[in-house]
Amino acid sequence: MVILTMDKTFILDGKTIPFEEGETIMEAASAAGVYIPHLCHHPEFKPHGSCKLCTVSIGGRLGASCTNKAAAGMVVESETEALNADRRALTQMLFVEGNHICPSCEKSGNCQLQAVAYHLDMLTPHFTHFYPARDIDASHPDVLLERNRCILCELCVRASRDVDGKNVFGIGGRGIKSRLIVNSASGRLADTNLSVTDRAVEVCPTGAILRKRHGFTVPIGRRLYDHHDIAEVPVAGMKEPRSS
């Protein structure tokens, strides 16, 4: 049993959160059962800090909770109207930058982008839609790469590199031209050693990487986020909440 001393705690939205040395604010908050909205963060992978949804106020300065280490006595705010408005705007921008047409997407109901938008009470993408032209790669026998739905979180890049040891994915281009690319001479998914059982396939938070022949298998009403807010749905690989 870990005995928590007073100097190993910080304040998050008025609540005392214990942490272990080296933990990020996000990790300590998750362990305490407190949800901070996020998309590129996953407990199993090295923090990326790119989606910025998990931005919190740390002693009055803004920072990503997935990359900032918890420190004794720090005062962190997350559930403020202003921060949630920023998170909503970021999510809206992710929606209009891609082609996220939920009614035609196999991932709908199990999609983290959609679930975060529900959590933030997003009623409209608000901004002008880009409707970008993006390629689909259907060459692989078991896996579909649907770039229209990619949010560039790099979870597949990290999973393929760090867990699968295959380095199948990468991000090419810059700025608005950034895109998910495939590490083969032809650039096609079929010409890589990606397997349908790879962690990189399973970890995609949206419908960008899909297992073929598994679409719409779970009926509406029984999908992951049909009845439960993403804040209440545990993520695979997340640390067990510490008993207080």
Binding site: N99, H100, I101, C102, P103, S104, T124, Y131, P132, R134
Partner: peptide, 18 residues
């Protein structure tokens, strides 16, 4: 009031946009 996915995002008809 904008009602439904198509009024709000273009929806299924917007699949033809590219």
């Amino acid at each position: 009031v904008a009602m439904g996915a198509c009024a709000i995002t273009g929806g299924i008809p917007a699949l033809r946009n590219n």
